[in-house]
Write a protein that binds this DNA or RNA. Structure first.
Length: 439
DNA sequence: TCTGGGGTCCTAGGACCC
DNA sequence: TCTGGGGTCCTAGGACCC
């Protein structure tokens, strides 16, 4: 495996919890969870919480008693903060390699050029230390000849304490020894279903899978699992994607803080989703040929009548204009809405996307009316905050009874002027004037 | 009575990821 | 009482065509 380019995978440990701790160093040893929207599920856990056996994704109400006993602090999710911290993490990594693939909010692949084997561990340690020092986030680094092996190395770096957060798979013997010590479920590309099926075939560890026949894997599970096996053997099948591709569909959806029954309230929620969705659409320079609208009752309440309809409305011509998308969405919602149900979620999908610049110009060179209005709205929202101006139908936020529950959200420390962290300094035991006041 | 074969496109559903 | 949100890709099967 020498002399070939390597892949590094850098991953933030317990990303959301770690972001919170950067601004609350007093919580460094407090057990913390971060909850999903509406404070529904546990989506990030500190090491202390993992040690208590709280699983990922568990509904919060199911572990609330345990949380009380162990004084677990539950925070509502603060995506402004996590998104901003992620940007800092990604841009810091850019110092280490010209080739970078941003894989998710807390993960990034880097291309590592040819370098002596002895320097590779040093590089890993340097990355780890720099992110800690500049951003304040703890990361683990995995290095290997393919993406799947870099993921595996990263997993080992996280789980095996003696590695101190860095692991380099430099030989097939390294791969075997690590692959033997983890269940097949831990490999990238094997989820709950596949692992159950694989285990029933007698393939229990990652090494078992690595030794399996790619042809049989393709037959039983499809081409991706065959590729995973090749990758585990050091043959790269998953390409590096430096430039993110345009999204092929865009979704905006959310559960409500309280169940809704009226068309009017659902319409407000849908209009908010159309606004968010069409902003994303314009940001990537695409237009949609169709929009799907959906609403749902609470599937967990089996005693309630269930109804989860959705409808696709095609647009007369592909558009990125909030108003024409809203018109189509409103028509769709009126079509599927039935009174008498308790709806807990609504959303939209923008589908059949194409690049706006590939659209034919309208006949006779007619101006696209209202383009200026939309771009002015985007500019205002960009400058003064995302909900500064919008369509009248969205409703005023204070009148909404459907907004998310977020009972314990920390400030947007890095992205809102009036929530910036204030720093106090003391000299000779006397407080010096603060930099500014909040009010 | 006897009813082909090969190709493409589309869609829904199922799996995976974070 | 209380159960997230946003993506991707692959496959099987049906419709349709010649």
């Amino acid at each position: 495996m020498n002399g070939r380019p390597l892949v590094a995978l850098i991953d933030v440990n317990n990303m959301y919890v770690s972001c919170e701790r950067v601004f609350r160093p007093d919580l460094a040893r407090t057990p913390i969870v971060v909850l999903s929207n509406n404070d529904g599920c546990v989506i990030s856990r500190s090491a202390e919480v993992k040690a208590l056996g709280v699983p990922m994704g568990v509904p919060w109400f199911k572990v609330r008693d345990l949380a009380k006993t162990h004084r677990i602090l539950a925070l509502s999710s603060n995506y402004d903060l996590y998104g901003d911290m992620s940007d800092r993490f990604i841009s810091t990594l850019r110092h280490f390699s010209p080739t970078q693939e941003v894989y998710s909010i807390d993960e990034c692949f880097l291309g590592v050029g040819d370098m002596p084997e002895s320097s590779i561990m040093d590089l890993g340690r340097d990355i780890r230390q720099t992110i800690q020092q500049w951003i304040g986030l703890p990361v683990c680094v995995g290095l290997g000849p393919t993406k799947t092996l870099a993921k595996l190395a990263n997993h080992a770096a996280k789980k095996q304490e003696h590695r101190q957060g860095v692991c380099f798979l430099k030989s097939p013997e390294d791969v075997t020894s690590i692959a033997q010590s983890f269940p097949v479920r831990d490999v990238w590309g094997v989820g709950a279903r596949y692992s159950k099926h694989l285990t029933s075939l007698g393939l229990r560890t990652i090494e078992d899978l690595r030794q399996w026949s790619p042809d049989l894997a393709r037959q039983h599970f499809g081409v991706n699992l065959a590729r995973t096996i090749w990758e585990l053997r050091g043959e790269a099948c998953f390409k590096f994607q430096e430039i993110p591709e345009d999204k092929k569909c865009i979704t905006s959806s959310r559960s409500f803080g309280n169940a809704l029954t009226s068309l009017e309230h659902l319409m407000e929620a849908i209009s908010l989703h159309v606004t968010r969705g069409s902003e994303k659409l314009r940001a990537q320079g695409s237009v949609a040929r169709a929009i799907r609208v959906f609403i749902m009752t609470n599937r967990h309440r089996t005693q309630d009548l269930q109804y989860y309809p959705g409808v696709i409305i095609s647009l007369e011509s592909p558009s990125d204009d909030t108003r024409s998308l809203m018109q189509a969405a409103a028509e769709g919602l009126r079509r599927i809405y039935r009174p008498g149900f308790r709806y807990v979620k609504a959303g939209i999908n923008l589908i059949d996307l194409t690049r706006k610049d590939l659209q034919p110009t309208p006949l006779w060179g007619m101006p696209r009316t209202g383009e200026n209005l939309i771009s002015v709205m985007d500019a205002l929202n960009d400058r003064f905050g995302s909900r500064t101006v919008g369509l009248g139908i969205m409703g005023l936020s204070q009148e909404r009874n459907w907004s998310m529950k977020r009972e314990n959200k920390t400030p947007s420390y890095t992205t809102e002027w009036d929530e910036l962290r204030c720093v106090f300094a003391t000299r000779h035991k006397k407080r010096i004037p603060r930099l500014w006041n909040h009010n």
